[in-house]
Computed example of a mutant assay.
Amino acid sequence: MRSEEEWAALTKGLLKAEMTRRGITYDQLTEKLAAIGVHDTAVNIRNKVARGKFTAVFMIQCLSAIGCKSLRMEDD
């Protein structure tokens, strides 16, 4: 059974991996989010991701903004 911290680390890792895969920085993510109507600063976004405790809505917004069409939760 995973702890709350382990779930947060998995969530953070998934989003960061997708950003890395696409070469997206936090500044670029901020711009891409703004383009879909989500306004926040790069610092706030970086802090949310670092904590790993953000809403599912925020995660989907980020994934959509960076062009992620599918997500692999864990390696088999």
Rank of each mutant, 00 (worst) to 15 (best):
E6Y: 05
K12E: 08
Q28E: 15
K53E: 11
D75K: 10
V38T: 12
L71N: 09
L29H: 05
E6R: 13
Q61V: 05
A8G: 04
A56N: 09
K32H: 03
T20W: 05
R72G: 03
K69L: 09
T11W: 11
A56I: 07
E74C: 09
C68W: 00
N44P: 04
V38A: 10
K32A: 06
R2K: 13
G23E: 10
N44W: 06
A17K: 15
A65M: 00
I45F: 01
H39I: 13
I36C: 06
I24M: 10
L15Y: 04
Q61I: 02
R21F: 01
M59Y: 04
T41F: 01
K32T: 06
I45L: 07
T30I: 04
Q61H: 12
S3N: 06
S3W: 01
E31Q: 11
R22V: 03
L63I: 02
R46S: 13
M59L: 10
F54T: 02
K53N: 11
E74H: 07
K16L: 15
C62E: 08
E18I: 05
I60P: 00
R46I: 03
A42I: 12
S3F: 05
L10Q: 15
Q28M: 13
G52V: 02
T20Y: 07
T20G: 11
N44C: 08
T25L: 04
K32W: 00
M1N: 12
D75C: 07
L71W: 04
A17Y: 09
L14T: 15
T30C: 05
I24L: 08
V43L: 06
E5A: 14
A8V: 12
G13R: 03
M59K: 09
D40P: 00
E18A: 11
R22G: 03
I24H: 04
G13H: 01
G13Q: 04
K53C: 06
L29N: 04
M73K: 03
G67K: 05
I60R: 08
R72P: 00
T20S: 14
M1T: 11
I45V: 07
F58M: 11
V38Y: 13
T25A: 03
A42L: 09
R22K: 10
L29E: 04
M19N: 11
G23S: 13
S70R: 14
W7E: 15
K48G: 02
Q28C: 07
V38K: 10
T20K: 13
T55Q: 00
E6M: 13
H39S: 11
A8H: 01
G67Y: 04
M19C: 10
A8I: 09
S70V: 01
W7K: 14
